[in-house]
Computed example of a mutant assay.
Amino acid sequence: MALQAPAQQLVTVFGGSGFVGRHVVRALVKRGYRVRVAVRRPDLAGFLQPLGTVGQIHAVQANLRYPASVAAAVKGADAVVNLVGIMNERGRQSFAAVQANGARTVAQACAAAGIDRLVQISALGAAAESRSAYARTKAEGESAVRHIVPRAVILRPSVMFGPEDDFFNRFASMARMMPVLPLVGDGSAKLQPAFVGDVAEVVARGVDGALEPGRTYELGGPEVMSLRELVEDVCKVIGRKRLILPLPLPLAGIMARVLEVVDTLTLGLLPNELKLTRDQVTLLGSDNVVSAAAKAEGRDFAGLGIAPVSVEVEVPSYLWRFRKTGQFDTARAS
């Protein structure tokens, strides 16, 4: 059965006002879809309006911990995208509540509404046996979605970068403030950063129905680099020489525990650059790259005919603000 034209279709995007969400919304409205952005604070999603035409984007209140709000958000939709995920637990926003039970709630709402075009964002490294609660709950969410909506498409991106990212911007900010940059472990863990715009394009293709239903895609950029190499590149781009100090994983875990306590005692006022959790230490202790199986089966960017944007091309375009004289520091940028 042929799908209706995008302008006649409504797509609900959970988490559409976040870092990934704004790029996904942009990709969808460019195709002509009407987009319902389901977020906890719709009053803070007004910045999305200029991305589309009048009435094309509409924000509604929804919280994955409340099934009734999720059911209301998918009502009348032709497709659903779930982008909701967290890196830090706070209060009732736990990994289990958001990434496992939340994904299950979205899938159940889709099944009840007869929607089988569901795109679920997970993460590379998601595994039921992982020592990381983040990775375990991502895997639990995948399993629930696959069981409830078998035709759902699951995307597993590596760490994502873009102008609003919390990865390269974070290290650049630390390098601006601190003479020494602590590095979790020996910095040898391999990462394959993916440009958020490329990931958004794959999400949009999933909504189009252009991806094979029921498959899991792994999305990593063109470069596979160690954590140390990425941090060194950040320092080079912003023109700041910094001592990079490796922290053995046990010591990094102790430091993370101290920072967790400090963050709690200050009611979350600890600067984001200084926040570190034990679960993040666990994640940074292992590689995060596209598997050989995904490459062989065409379940990656190359298999989709997408030439992903490289870190080298994109990252300097937004890290200039961390140079000593900002955009005018052309000598250091060259």
Results as ranks from 00 to 15, higher is better:
L183K: 09
V184Y: 07
G187W: 06
G187Q: 07
A189M: 04
A189N: 04
A189V: 02
K190M: 15
K190F: 04
K190W: 09
L191V: 11
L191Y: 03
L191K: 09
Q192S: 06
Q192D: 02
Q192T: 05
A194V: 15
A194I: 14
F195W: 15
V196D: 00
V196Y: 00
V196R: 00
D198K: 12
D198R: 07
D198E: 06
V199E: 09
V199L: 10
A200E: 02
V202K: 01
V202T: 01
V203R: 10
V203E: 11
V203G: 04
R205I: 02
G206V: 04
G206T: 08
V207A: 00
V207P: 01
D208K: 03
D208A: 03
D208W: 05
G209L: 09
L211Y: 03
L211G: 05
L211I: 08
E212Y: 00
E212R: 14
P213W: 07
G214K: 12
R215W: 12
R215H: 11
R215C: 14
T216Y: 06
T216C: 11
Y217F: 15
Y217C: 10
Y217T: 03
E218G: 11
E218A: 10
L219W: 01
G221W: 03
E223K: 04
V224K: 08
M225E: 14
M225I: 06
S226L: 00
S226K: 00
L227K: 04
L227Y: 04
R228E: 13
R228V: 02
E229Q: 14
E229T: 08
E229R: 14
L230S: 10
L230P: 08
L230Y: 14
V231E: 12
E232I: 06
E232C: 12
E232F: 10
D233N: 14
D233G: 14
D233W: 15
V234I: 05
V234Q: 03
C235H: 05
C235V: 12
K236R: 15
K236V: 07
V237P: 00
I238E: 02
G239S: 08
R240T: 05
R240S: 08
R240M: 04
R242Y: 09
L243H: 06
I244Q: 07
L245F: 15
L245P: 01
P246V: 12
P246E: 06
P248L: 05
L249I: 15
L249K: 14
P250C: 09
L251F: 10
L251V: 15
A252E: 11
I254A: 11
I254V: 14
I254K: 11
M255N: 11
